[in-house]
Simulated assay, not measured.
Amino acid sequence: MIYFHDIDPIALKLGPLSVHWYGVMYLLGFASAWWLGKRRVAAGRLPGVDANGFSDLLFYAMLGVVVGGRVGYMLFYALGDVLHDPLLLFKVWDGGMSFHGGLLGVLVASWWWSRRHRTHFADTMDFVAPLVPLGLGFGRIGNFIGAELWGKYTDGTWGVVFPSGLPAPLNQLDTATLQAQFATGALNPYARHPSQLYEALLEGLVMFVVLWTVSARPRHRYLVSGLFALLYGVFRFAVEFVRMPDNGVYLAFGWFTKGQLLSLPLVALGLVLLAMSRRAPVLQPATVVEGKA
């Protein structure tokens, strides 16, 4: 089935203020992390840390996501632009967030929090890892609603026609005209893979089910964070084959993308952490110490 993408990226208008679906998805991601984290704290999955300590951790992690995601995007994908105009770094309303940059931001924030709270950094990351996938899934749904990061053309009988992904002069036509052409089947050759939804399924739902299931019982240190790094790296690498390369440029071989290049270190890190987990101690749920921050 071919679907014509005609979703308003604005979820709500309050006078001059417009609330975009992408922002709503970010809020849902943070809200899900808060709710799941509260459950894990109550179950003693972060030894010696109570609800107040978790609130601090979530604040640091949110800051790391936003700052790291923006800085990472500008460095990885728009370095020339930001060197020409450094103020672009602060124009977050123009869009542009990087998962890999956000991940680095979360790692730095969690390391700082772990030092302050005298918690093993690996235990913190094992605790945080299951809270992230749902946020990734919501973010990819936000990408789909915003008609960004679309996939390559598909030869199948299903796909999505993104008006912004049509070649000129079709991308200059108004929505009503495009819908009329779509109804005749004239736009079917321009249907693309909804790679955003593929990622929402794999990086969001599948990763959440795996990590939440593994982390719900006693497990070796490094195991959960190792699975997170490995699964994300593999899933992202695979989806890149049907996703348009960043800035339309392949790095090598006519298929190797920057997203794949940035995912390879995660695959390697995941394998290293899984190997380390085999000799690491098994972490048992601990009694929460109320009032300790």
Rank of each mutant, 00 (worst) to 15 (best):
Leu107Cys: 11
Asp174Asn: 15
Ser98Asn: 03
Leu197Ile: 13
Pro133Cys: 10
Ala43His: 09
Leu283Gln: 14
Pro189Ser: 10
Gly142Cys: 03
Leu58Tyr: 03
Leu201Pro: 05
Trp111Ile: 11
Glu148Arg: 09
Val210Thr: 09
Gly142His: 02
Ile145Pro: 05
Pro167Thr: 02
Tyr222Thr: 09
Arg192Asn: 10
Tyr77Thr: 02
Leu273Val: 03
Met276Lys: 15
Ala268His: 04
Val206Cys: 13
Leu36Lys: 06
Gly137Gln: 01
Ile2Lys: 09
Leu104Asp: 01
His5Asn: 07
Lys292Ala: 13
Ile145Arg: 05
Tyr22Gly: 07
Ala252Gly: 09
Ala147His: 05
Phe138Ile: 00
Ala191Ile: 01
Pro86Asp: 11
Thr119Cys: 13
Gly23Trp: 01
Ser164Ile: 12
Phe208Cys: 02
Pro9Thr: 02
Gly102Ile: 00
Val224Cys: 10
Ala229Trp: 12
Leu264Ser: 11
Arg192Met: 12
Gly185Asn: 14
Trp111Gln: 12
Ser114Leu: 10
Val239Trp: 00
Leu266Ile: 04
Val289Lys: 14
Ala293Ile: 13
Ala275Tyr: 15
Gly291Gln: 11
Val242Met: 07
Met207Asp: 02
Lys152Thr: 11
Ala200Ile: 05
Arg236Gly: 05
Ala51Phe: 10
Lys152Ala: 10
Leu262Ala: 05
Leu136Arg: 00
Leu79His: 11
Leu104Cys: 06
Gly102Ser: 05
Leu273Tyr: 07
Asp81Lys: 14
Leu187Ser: 11
Val239His: 05
Met1His: 04
Ser215Phe: 13
Tyr250Val: 15
Trp35Asn: 02
Tyr198Met: 08
Ser263Arg: 07
Trp113Ser: 10
Pro163His: 06
Ala293His: 12
Val282Asn: 06
Leu261Asn: 09
Leu274Thr: 00
Leu46Thr: 01
Gly139Asp: 03
Ala31Val: 03
Ala293Lys: 15
Leu75Pro: 07
Leu57Asn: 00
Ala275Met: 14
His5Tyr: 05
Pro285Thr: 07
Lys292Tyr: 00
Ser215Glu: 07
His84Tyr: 06
Ala43Tyr: 03
Gln196Ser: 08
Ala180Arg: 13
Leu136Glu: 03
Glu199Lys: 04
Val282Lys: 14
Ala268Pro: 04
His5Lys: 13
Arg40Val: 01
Val209Ala: 14
Gly15Ile: 11
Pro189Ile: 06
Leu269Pro: 01
Ser98Tyr: 03
Leu251Gly: 12
Ser98Pro: 04
Gly29Ser: 03
Phe138Cys: 07
Met244Pro: 04
Trp93Leu: 09
Asp174Thr: 05
Lys38His: 09
Leu136Trp: 02
Ser98Gly: 03
Arg40Phe: 02
Pro285Glu: 10
Phe127Tyr: 09
Leu58Pro: 01
Gly48Cys: 10
Met62Thr: 06
Val239Lys: 01
Trp158Ala: 15
Pro47Lys: 08
Thr213Arg: 15
Thr287Lys: 15
Tyr73Asp: 08
Arg45Lys: 13
Val214Glu: 08
Phe54Glu: 08
Ala11Thr: 05
Asn247Gln: 15
Val242Phe: 13
Gly146Ser: 15
Leu46Pro: 11
Leu36Ala: 07
Ser164Pro: 03
Met97Arg: 07
Pro194Lys: 09
Phe127Ile: 07
Val242Leu: 04
Leu223Asp: 05
Gly15Arg: 13
Ala122Thr: 08
Phe99Gly: 01
Val224Trp: 09
Val67Asp: 02
Gly254Val: 08
Gly254Tyr: 06
Asp8Glu: 13
